[in-house]
């Protein structure tokens, strides 16, 4: 799921400074699981805005604000001075499609996360467009190697730990352990393509 963190309140208030009648949009999907955009988060930020002298005209937690159809269905009759969106960038930009009112994001999207438990997330997938996990024992070198090296480790890995973060395991040490030397380990991996596959539905943007 998309991991988000809330922006600092002063930054949110600064973005809202020219507007009033704030309508808060929450997210019942990823941001609820992250505790950054569910009912409780909406309630909390609503109180903080009121305390800062802002008028809050209403709120709604959308099932999936990143779905334009859902945003249209739930927001078409809402009139607001500004929408404050507690969702990821996909959510903000789906709301942009259904309103001409100004938009302010309340969250910073950080990565696609694997959830261990609430608050403990792992950045394991970069949505790179070309999954190589079949050959690497299910361990992704794009996300789990600090340099995203796909032919093997750098010289900085010491005793199975990463040079950029000694608390992290070297992805290639994990891959070696998991695959016991089989898989793609010995193959030459050519340079990655940064063009994403085309024709995913009517998906238009093809580059990262």
């Amino acid at each position: 799921m998309i991991i988000t963190v809330q922006k600092p309140l002063p930054e949110i208030l600064d973005s809202l400074k020219d507007y009033d009648n704030v309508f808060i949009v929450g997210c019942a999907a990823c941001a609820t699981k992250c505790q950054t955009g569910g009912e409780e988060a909406v309630k909390k930020i609503s109180e903080e805005l009121k305390k800062a002298g802002k008028k809050v005209s209403g709120s709604a937690v959308l099932d999936t604000p990143c779905d334009i159809r859902v945003a249209k269905r739930d927001l078409k009759n809402v009139s607001a001075g500004v929408f404050l969106i507690l969702g990821c960038g996909a959510g903000v930009q789906s709301v942009e499609k259904v309103t001409s009112a100004p938009l302010v994001p309340a969250l910073d999207p950080v990565f696609t996360g694997t959830v261990e438990r609430i608050g403990i997330y792992h950045e394991y997938c970069a949505l790179c467009g070309s999954c190589m996990l079949a050959g690497t024992g299910g361990i992704c070198p794009i996300t789990r190697c600090a340099k995203s090296l796909i032919n093997g480790p750098c010289g900085g890995a010491v005793n199975g730990k990463c040079e950029a973060d000694p608390d992290s395991d070297c992805a290639w040490a994990l891959i070696l352990e998991k695959t016991k030397g089989k898989g793609i380990l010995k193959d030459y991996m050519p340079p990655r393509s940064f063009i994403k596959p085309k024709n995913i539905g009517r998906h238009k943007k093809t580059t990262l």
Binding site: V158, W172, G181
Partner: peptide
């Protein structure tokens, strides 16, 4: 890196 562990990975990279 002759001192890095695991040595298998150093040998693999040397070969590549």
């Amino acid at each position: 890196n002759p001192t890095a562990n695991p040595v298998e990975l150093q040998i693999m990279m040397l070969e590549k």
